[in-house]
Amino acid sequence: NDTYGHAGGDEVLRILANTLKQSVGNQGIVGRLGGEEFGIFLPSTDLEKGQQVAANICQTMRQVQMIVEGRSIGITLSIGGTLHAATTAIGHSLKIADRRLYKAKHAGRDQYDFGDEGQASQLLRG
């Protein structure tokens, strides 16, 4: 929004939402948490599959080119994710995913940090 205005920001959100929906298909649920943050819930997903989904989303977004004011711009994103145990409150899992998201952002963006609660953070490029 700061660089390309609200129309450009809104278009990025639409592109991201569509990419996320296509990436999870019928395997999960995508929802907007607020602002520019989205959540994905993938039932019965293991760590490897979660990391693969995150990597694929990053890669897909890197390939998107938007035309704004006659200029082509690329889109990247950062992802934080965790495995959710049925015995854990969803709010707790969201907090862990949010912490991992901020680690990915502060480490240079365009990457993901996805693991289970007890696993040390590991930043990965998709």
Rank of each mutant, 00 (worst) to 15 (best):
A54S: 15
A54M: 03
A55I: 03
N56F: 08
N56E: 14
I57R: 07
I57F: 07
I57M: 13
C58G: 03
Q59A: 15
Q59P: 02
T60F: 09
T60P: 03
T60Q: 15
T60W: 09
T60K: 14
M61R: 09
M61H: 10
M61Y: 09
R62W: 09
R62I: 05
R62H: 12
R62P: 10
Q63M: 12
V64C: 09
V64K: 14
V64R: 14
V64H: 15
V64N: 10
Q65M: 11
Q65E: 10
Q65P: 10
Q65V: 13
Q65D: 13
Q65K: 15
Q65Y: 14
M66D: 04
M66V: 07
I67K: 10
I67W: 09
I67S: 15
I67F: 06
V68K: 12
V68C: 08
V68M: 12
V68D: 13
V68Y: 15
E69V: 10
G70K: 09
G70I: 03
G70T: 07
R71F: 10
R71C: 13
S72E: 14
S72D: 11
S72I: 03
S72F: 13
I73N: 05
I73Y: 11
I73S: 07
I73K: 13
G74S: 15
G74V: 07
G74Y: 11
G74I: 01
I75V: 15
I75C: 10
I75N: 11
T76R: 08
T76G: 14
T76Y: 10
L77N: 02
I79R: 05
I79G: 06
I79Q: 06
I79H: 05
G80R: 03
G81S: 03
T82N: 06
T82P: 01
L83M: 08
L83Q: 13
L83N: 02
A85I: 00
A85H: 11
A85L: 10
A85N: 11
A85G: 12
A86L: 14
A86G: 01
A86R: 04
T88R: 14
T88H: 12
A89W: 06
A89T: 05
A89Q: 12
A89S: 12
A89M: 06
A89Y: 04
I90L: 15
G91Q: 08
G91I: 04
G91D: 15
G91S: 14
G91H: 08
H92V: 11
H92L: 06
S93W: 06
S93E: 02
S93Y: 07
L94M: 13
L94W: 11
L94P: 00
K95H: 05
K95E: 08
I96G: 01
I96C: 08
D98F: 03
R99Q: 07
R99E: 03
R99F: 01
R99N: 04
R100V: 00
R100W: 01
L101D: 00
L101P: 01
Y102G: 08
Y102E: 01
K103Q: 11
K103H: 09
K103P: 00
A104Y: 05
A104G: 06
K105E: 04
K105M: 09
K105S: 09
K105D: 05
K105T: 07
H106G: 12
H106L: 11
G108D: 08
G108F: 05
G108N: 06
G108R: 05
R109P: 06
R109G: 06
R109T: 01
D110E: 08
D110L: 04
D110C: 07
Y112P: 00
Y112Q: 04
D113Q: 02
D113F: 04
F114K: 00
F114I: 03
F114P: 00
G115E: 03
G115R: 03
G115H: 02
